[in-house]
Amino acid sequence: MGVFLFIVLCSVASDKGIMLEPDRPFLRVKIFERAELECCYKNAVNNGIWVKRLSSGQTEPVNLSEEVFQNYSKSNGKQCGFLTLTNAKLNDTGMYQCHFINTTVYTHGTYLQVFKPIEKTISLSESTKNKILTAEGVLLLLCVVIPSASLLFKSKKQNRLEMKKMKQEEENIYQGLNLEDCCTTYDQIERSQTQSQYQDVCTAMEEREEILEKP
């Protein structure tokens, strides 16, 4: 659509003998700053007047004042019109073109955007910013160290519980045993072994004596 409009404007301009120069397509300025628009052309009988194109597609002349004014220059057969806004406002945003009186010729135009920068909600000095960054670094370090220390502490606690449990199991093995009974049983076993040895010796002696008495 834009290319088609450009071709139509160029053809109309050629019919009237006016040759349009390329315009700056886009200009962005901060609110309350200076904005300068320019349109250049050749073979124009009269200078173009600045108009603002509305959203409906129609145009309206730019209201001139002390803060909004236009001027013209001519050199080497090329004419240029300038529109200066010394104190741009948000409602100045729009499409600006030069229009030649008694014709339907408009320059390609420049879209002006006036913006309001985001203001700082909190104004901080450099020293305050450095302190905030230092505090963030300390908090980040704590976020790393504290969980690690907690895991290490839990691991040690778990190991202690396991060792305690093993010790309790060992104690439970000997819990039902009576040491006096164990000692009595041991003594009986020892005595029986000793007596059997003595009996064997005596029996052997008696047998030998019987053998010796028989001629």
Rank of each mutant, 00 (worst) to 15 (best):
K154D: 09
E66A: 04
N102V: 07
L112V: 01
K165D: 11
E36W: 02
E38Y: 02
P147E: 08
E136N: 07
V62D: 00
L142C: 08
I118P: 02
C98M: 13
Q195M: 12
P215A: 12
G109N: 04
Y174K: 08
L27Y: 03
Q113G: 01
Q199S: 10
V138W: 07
Q199I: 06
V138G: 01
E209W: 10
L179A: 06
Y174T: 10
T93I: 05
D181T: 14
P147W: 08
L112M: 02
N178C: 13
M95V: 02
I122S: 04
L152D: 03
Q79H: 05
L161Y: 04
E171K: 14
F32D: 02
G94R: 03
G176L: 13
I173A: 02
S11C: 10
G2F: 11
L179I: 11
G137E: 14
E206T: 11
Y186N: 15
R34S: 09
F69G: 02
R28V: 10
E209I: 14
V144C: 10
E33T: 14
E36S: 09
C182P: 00
T59Q: 04
T84I: 15
A204D: 11
R28M: 13
T86I: 01
V201F: 08
S73C: 03
L54D: 06
C40W: 04
L140T: 10
T134R: 09
I146R: 06
M19R: 06
K116M: 06
S123F: 10
T104K: 14
S150V: 15
C182L: 15
I122N: 05
Y174A: 05
S150D: 13
E67Q: 13
S196G: 07
G176C: 09
T84S: 05
D92Q: 14
C40V: 02
S123R: 08
N87T: 05
E209N: 05
C143Q: 15
N47S: 08
M205I: 09
G109T: 04
D15R: 12
L20W: 00
G77C: 01
E180P: 01
S125K: 10
C40I: 07
V145Y: 04
F32R: 12
K214H: 12
